[in-house]
């Protein structure tokens, strides 16, 4: 009997995609903007979130964060000082977050009582690109200390972002950071993405970043079911 060919046409990540779609509808229904923060390790995701959570809370926004790391709860402890609800996701050996990990860690949180949920992904410029976490905005960080050509070296992750933040701008002069080259490199792989220069230490660009988030949430609300 001849072998038979079955057409499947299924995503290799179908299980994750399904869970992510379910999360996205929950977030949308709750009027919550979920933001997936991705970057290499040490690009400043936690420092950015510390200042973002603190400042947004003082403006009356209801913010929360999930923080992914292979081990330790250091980042969650740092972020909890802002007063916002924060939970750590310890992935063990997993190099990226998956929708299932996010869904499980959200248990017990009332999403209706939140305006923004930040998900700090595991520091990694490769694997997180493929995993949808149900977010409505993906933000990639490129530190001024990292080298301007990182986006060209890791196109999938940078391409998947809606916004690119160039972080640690307070160190730009010390490392002879070439801002124009970094912007060109970002635009080469992610022409659709907005770009902002920030410094969690000096506060540069933080207001613009928060404006971007608030604006994004407003657009997102318009698409939410009535």
């Amino acid at each position: 009997m001849p072998p038979r060919i079955l057409e499947l046409r299924q995503s290799l990540l179908e299980k994750n995609d399904q869970l992510a779609r379910a999360l996205r509808s929950r977030f949308l229904a709750a009027g919550l903007l979920a933001v997936n923060l991705v970057s290499s390790p040490g690009a400043g995701k936690t420092a950015l979130l510390e200042v973002t959570l603190t400042r947004m809370r003082s403006q009356g926004w209801r913010v929360a964060a999930l923080v992914g790391d292979l081990a330790t709860t250091h980042d969650a402890q740092r972020l909890q000082r802002s007063g916002a609800p924060v939970r750590q996701i310890e992935t063990g050996t997993l190099c990226h977050l998956e929708a299932d990990l996010v869904a499980r860690r959200l248990e017990g949180w009332s999403l209706d009582e939140l305006d923004f949920l930040f998900v700090e992904n595991v520091g990694n410029l490769v694997c997180p690109a493929d995993y949808d976490l149900g977010e409505s905005a993906r933000v990639v960080l490129l530190a001024a200390t990292e080298g301007e050509d990182k986006p060209r070296k890791y196109p999938p992750l940078f391409h998947s972002a809606d916004l690119a933040l160039i972080t640690k701008m307070d160190l730009a002069a010390a490392v002879a950071f070439d801002s124009a080259a970094a912007v060109a490199s970002l635009q080469a792989v992610a022409p659709h993405a907005a770009i902002l220069e920030t410094s969690a230490r000096s506060g540069l660009g933080i207001d613009s970043w928060i404006d971007w988030l608030v604006d994004r949430r407003r657009q997102h609300e318009k698409t939410a079911p009535a």
Binding site: L6, L8, R9, Q10, S11, L12, D130
Partner: peptide, 14 residues
């Protein structure tokens, strides 16, 4: 950005 299983070729039991 495709990451898809297109098809499988199977041998049937019967």
């Amino acid at each position: 950005r495709e990451l898809q299983i297109e098809s499988i070729e199977i041998e049937e039991k019967q």
